[in-house]
Structures are given as C-alpha cells and as structure tokens.
Lab assay of single mutants.
Amino acid sequence: STGEEYIAVGDFTAQQVGDLTFKKGEILLVIEKKPDGWWIAKDAKGNEGLVPRTYLEPYS
C-alpha cells in the first residue's frame, strides 16, 4: 500500500489496543489520516496501528 513517510518527534506508548508504539526518530508510513487526529500508520517492521498526528512531522 502507498502512504506518506513521517518521522516521529517523540516517543509514544500505546494506550489502548490498536495503538502503535514508536520511538522518537522512527520513520512511519501513514496510510490514512483520520479527522480526529489519530492516523493509521505502519512501522518498519510492518506493524500497523493508530498514532497521534501531533507526534509526527513530514519526512523528506
């Protein structure tokens, strides 16, 4: 699937089932941008889950 690459600007630990845990500096592939501010993203290992958009910045 296609998506946009974003870099994590902080650590995030999953708070509920379906969230994706990530560390600062990780590159995430954003698959869907939901209007509530929680985006669906995939990490380098292929894990998929919800992430808070405030922790992400476009990666170029």
Rank of each mutant, 00 (worst) to 15 (best):
S1H: 02
S1W: 01
S1P: 01
S1A: 07
T2I: 12
T2C: 11
T2K: 13
T2M: 13
T2W: 03
T2A: 02
T2H: 01
G3H: 04
G3C: 13
G3Y: 10
G3Q: 13
G3A: 07
G3N: 11
G3D: 08
G3K: 14
E4P: 07
E4H: 01
E4D: 04
E4V: 06
E4S: 13
E5F: 11
E5R: 01
Y6F: 07
Y6H: 07
Y6W: 07
Y6I: 01
Y6G: 01
Y6R: 02
Y6L: 04
I7S: 04
I7A: 03
I7Q: 06
I7N: 05
I7T: 09
I7P: 01
I7W: 03
I7L: 07
A8S: 07
A8H: 00
A8F: 01
A8E: 00
A8C: 04
A8T: 08
A8D: 00
A8Y: 01
V9I: 04
V9K: 05
V9C: 11
V9A: 12
V9R: 10
V9S: 06
V9T: 11
G10A: 05
G10F: 09
G10Y: 03
G10T: 09
G10D: 09
D11G: 08
D11F: 03
D11Y: 03
D11T: 08
F12Y: 13
F12A: 14
F12W: 11
F12R: 15
F12T: 06
T13H: 08
T13E: 06
T13Q: 04
T13L: 04
T13G: 03
T13D: 06
T13S: 04
T13P: 13
T13F: 04
A14Y: 04
A14S: 13
A14C: 02
A14K: 08
A14P: 13
A14G: 09
Q15A: 11
Q15T: 13
Q15H: 14
Q15N: 15
Q15V: 09
Q15W: 02
Q16A: 11
Q16G: 12
Q16S: 15
Q16T: 11
Q16P: 11
Q16M: 05
Q16D: 04
Q16F: 06
Q16L: 03
V17P: 11
V17D: 03
V17E: 07
V17Q: 06
V17K: 04
V17S: 09
V17C: 08
V17N: 02
G18T: 13
G18F: 03
G18M: 05
G18C: 04
G18N: 05
D19M: 15
D19S: 15
D19H: 14
D19N: 15
L20S: 01
L20I: 13
L20R: 01
L20M: 12
L20E: 00
L20F: 12
L20H: 03
L20Y: 01
L20V: 03
L20Q: 02
L20W: 01
T21M: 06
T21E: 11
T21P: 13
T21H: 08
T21R: 12
T21A: 06
T21Y: 02
F22Y: 11
F22D: 00
F22V: 12
F22K: 00
F22R: 00
F22S: 03
F22N: 00
F22I: 09
K23R: 09
K23S: 08
K23I: 04
K23W: 04
K23Y: 04
K23D: 03
K24V: 04
K24E: 12
K24Y: 02
K24R: 09
K24D: 11
K24T: 03
K24S: 04
G25C: 02
G25N: 08
G25E: 11
G25D: 09
G25R: 06
G25S: 07
E26T: 10
E26R: 04
E26K: 04
E26G: 07
E26D: 09
I27Y: 11
I27H: 06
I27K: 11
I27R: 11
L28N: 01
L28Q: 01
L28K: 01
L28R: 00
L28P: 00
L28V: 08
L28I: 07
L28G: 01
L29V: 11
L29E: 13
L29R: 06
V30L: 09
V30M: 04
V30S: 03
V30E: 01
V30T: 03
I31A: 08
I31R: 11
I31C: 11
I31N: 11
I31H: 10
I31L: 10
I31E: 08
I31F: 12
I31S: 10
E32W: 03
E32Y: 07
E32R: 07
E32C: 09
E32D: 04
E32I: 06
E32L: 06
K33A: 04
K33W: 02
K33D: 04
K33V: 08
K33S: 04
K33L: 04
K33C: 12
K33I: 11
K34H: 03
K34R: 09
K34I: 04
K34P: 09
K34N: 11
P35C: 13
P35D: 08
P35R: 09
P35G: 10
P35I: 04
D36R: 11
D36L: 10
D36G: 11
D36A: 02
D36N: 08
D36T: 13
D36I: 10
G37R: 12
G37E: 13
G37D: 14
W38H: 15
W38N: 15
W38E: 15
W38G: 15
W38Y: 15
W39L: 14
W39S: 04
W39F: 13
W39H: 03
W39Q: 01
W39G: 02
W39R: 01
I40E: 04
I40F: 06
I40Q: 12
I40S: 09
I40T: 11
I40H: 12
I40Y: 08
I40P: 11
I40A: 05
I40M: 07
A41I: 07
A41E: 00
A41P: 00
A41V: 12
A41K: 00
A41C: 10
A41G: 08
A41R: 00
A41D: 00
K42F: 05
K42N: 09
K42A: 05
K42P: 00
K42I: 04
K42V: 05
K42R: 09
K42Y: 05
K42W: 02
K42M: 04
D43I: 01
D43W: 00
D43K: 08
D43Y: 00
D43C: 09
A44W: 08
A44L: 09
A44E: 12
A44P: 13
A44G: 11
A44H: 10
K45T: 09
K45S: 13
K45Y: 06
K45N: 08
K45E: 08
K45V: 06
K45I: 05
K45R: 08
G46P: 00
G46H: 06
G46N: 06
G46Y: 06
G46F: 04
G46I: 01
N47D: 13
N47R: 09
N47A: 09
N47G: 09
N47P: 01
N47K: 10
N47F: 05
E48I: 03
E48N: 02
E48K: 11
E48Y: 02
E48P: 12
E48G: 13
E48W: 03
E48F: 13
G49R: 01
G49A: 03
G49K: 01
L50S: 10
L50H: 10
L50A: 04
L50T: 06
L50Y: 07
L50I: 10
L50V: 07
L50R: 15
L50M: 10
L50G: 14
V51P: 00
V51Q: 00
V51A: 06
V51W: 00
V51N: 00
V51G: 02
V51H: 00
P52S: 15
P52Y: 14
P52Q: 15
R53W: 02
R53N: 10
R53F: 01
R53Q: 14
R53C: 03
R53M: 05
R53P: 15
R53E: 15
R53K: 15
T54Y: 07
T54N: 11
T54F: 04
T54C: 10
Y55C: 15
Y55R: 14
Y55K: 13
Y55Q: 15
Y55N: 13
Y55M: 14
L56Q: 00
L56W: 00
L56S: 00
L56F: 14
E57T: 02
E57V: 01
E57A: 13
E57W: 00
P58E: 12
P58G: 08
P58N: 05
P58D: 12
P58C: 05
Y59E: 11
Y59T: 09
Y59W: 10
Y59M: 09
Y59F: 06
S60R: 05
S60A: 14
S60I: 15
S60Y: 14
